[in-house]
């Protein structure tokens, strides 16, 4: 990878919580470089620290050790507005029900660029339109967010992040509430968006099988290890086999999926 292609770099990162001076380390020795136009999935068992890692990457939590650089600058040198122009987030939690329309939610992504009262400039409006077209949401533009299906809402929230026009987009389990068709649909859309817009898109997921087929790179986080590589390499290295205890399910390298141990 060339230096100007790298959007995010983590060096010797330790993640966890600092609670009343008591350190809880969830994972350490995390090193990675993320490049433009790549879709990266983060997988790992429940409670292993995926969300903590994402929160640390997003600057919400301080790393216990090590550094995160965005565009060769430490994440903690960015103020809130500057950070919101290089990194946008889609959270797992749904948004509160409101009268907001699809276009309005996407337009909220322009907040870092608008004036004190949030007036959209011509450029802002053009960006919103561009996002609506890219995600094929034009027909839903005036629909209220309470009238959308889960899959549509997820697309709209991705649209809001895209309108924020950042080099990096982080999504926390974007496919959780979706059926298998829409899980694949959203993930494929993420891949398409990463490639056409040349953004770095990082998301956490439990859909290992789908992620293997669609992602450029995958991060595998287990209790004592963190690896990042192309999915095919991870399969040959047997990284997915280490994800879960083998008493119940085993990873089948040929199909890239988990099989119940019988």
């Amino acid at each position: 990878m060339e230096a100007n292609e790298i959007t995010m770099k983590a060096t010797n990162l330790s993640i966890g919580y600092l609670h009343k001076k008591e350190k809880t380390t969830l994972a350490k020795n995390i090193n990675f470089q993320l490049a433009k136009g790549n879709l990266i999935a983060l997988v790992g068992p429940n409670g292993i620290g995926k969300s903590t890692l994402l929160k640390t990457i997003c600057g919400t939590l301080k790393p216990l050790q090590g550094t995160i650089n965005i565009q060769q600058k430490s994440i903690h040198t960015y103020d809130a507005t500057a950070l919101s122009k290089v990194l946008s987030i889609v959270f797992t939690e749904s948004i509160p029900p409101s009268n907001l329309t699809v276009a309005e939610i996407i337009a909220l992504g322009r907040q870092p660029y608008t004036n004190w009262i949030g007036t959209l400039s011509t450029a802002d409006k053009a960006k919103v339109k561009e996002v609506l077209q890219l995600l094929r949401l034009e027909s839903l533009a005036t629909r209220k967010c309470t009238e959308l299906s889960d899959g549509q809402l997820q697309k709209v929230l991705l649209g809001r992040a895209l309108a924020q026009d950042t080099d990096i987009i982080v999504l926390d389990e974007p496919t959780t509430h979706l059926d298998v068709y829409h899980k694949a649909y959203i993930m494929k859309l993420l891949k398409e968006v990463a490639h056409t817009t040349q953004k770095t898109i990082l998301f956490s997921t439990h859909e290992v099988t789908l992620a293997i087929q669609l992602c450029d790179q995958m991060m595998v986080l287990t209790a004592d290890d963190f690896v990042i590589d192309q999915p095919c390499n991870l399969i040959t290295e047997g990284s997915f086999a280490k994800l879960f205890p083998e008493d119940l399910i085993v990873f089948d390298a040929a199909t890239g999926s988990f099989k119940v141990n019988t």
Partner: peptide, 19 residues
């Protein structure tokens, strides 16, 4: 006004948009 509009999406989103 601007911050309140961002808060319609919840505090997390508002924060992530620099509010």
């Amino acid at each position: 006004i601007k911050g309140l509009n961002a808060l319609l999406l919840g505090e997390q989103y508002a924060k992530s948009m620099g509010v």
